[in-house]
Design a protein around this nucleic acid. Structure first.
Lengths: 137, 137
DNA sequence: GACATTTTTAGACAAAGTCTAGAAATTGTC
DNA sequence: GACAATTTCTAGACTTTGTCTAAAAATGTC
């Protein structure tokens, strides 16, 4: 319990994020395993046992974590952003029917030869999303 | 003018879409060139010269067009869906700083070896999005 | 023309996310 | 420890995109 908390605190510090109570709380939920959570999901999980963080703080914190590279924004659902606690290089399956989002092994897909980028821009990341539908009736 | 309108009408019919007045109006805007428009942009363009279609109709129509393959939804911006009138196979650059969305030549990027799909699913499409930032100061 | 079906519409509504201004916590300084 | 300065957190109002509903209008069929 405590050991985990300390690891989370260290990870926040290493990223240059002051480990406040609610940030640590949020980070513990995100980092306990590789997962994809929306802001509203994080909000309700954090607040399972009495309120510990407000909506504004959840949004601020997730934005901060994304900026600091602790978490990755995944934009596949037009209605909400998912935050992925797996920040290593990988891609996604997105099941359009179920809303289920899962990781693709980075070695399983290969994106070959990046095209020339437009003038005055640098690549910020390459997202590959394989959209799925249910095949069963 | 009229010839263009007829081409649009034929294209709607071919896709199994009854060419009503407002659908033709919307289609003419979308199909006049390859572009990426949000629903609100389509709404304001359609209604340049007096109202010809309501908000509900714009949303219904864009959804219908997407379903019929006349247009492609592009999900890159967490706040809105873009509708791409280029339905041939291709990928996208998305400039995070400017919000600018542009096509990538389909031959310029190669996605090799699709990974095995999860049980009970079929691929619905593969989206490759290269996120860009401005490099100039 | 009467009828059924499809399409359009205004406007209420929903949900994700942002903003604001004040309260609370934290930090550094003495 | 007391204090001020800074950072962080908060409630709640607000914005925006998008959906829904129920009625009106258009369209097609006999």
């Amino acid at each position: 319990m405590e050991a985990l908390r300390n690891k989370v605190v260290d990870r926040l510090k290493a990223a240059g994020v002051t480990p406040t109570q609610q940030r640590v709380e949020i980070a513990q939920i995100l980092f306990r395993e590789h997962q994809h959570l929306s802001a509203e999901q994080v909000l309700s999980e954090v607040n399972q046992n009495g309120t510990v963080a407000s909506k504004a703080t959840i949004y601020n914190t997730l934005g901060l974590f994304a900026e600091k590279g602790l978490v990755r924004e995944v934009i596949v659902d037009p209605t909400k952003v998912f935050y992925d606690s797996n920040v290593s290089d990988h891609h996604h399956f997105y099941n359009v029917d179920t809303g289920n989002l899962t990781d693709i092994d980075p070695n399983a897909v290969q994106v070959a030869n990046l095209p020339p980028l437009p003038e005055g821009t640098v690549a910020d990341g390459v997202d590959v999303i394989i959209r799925l539908r249910q095949s069963d009736i």
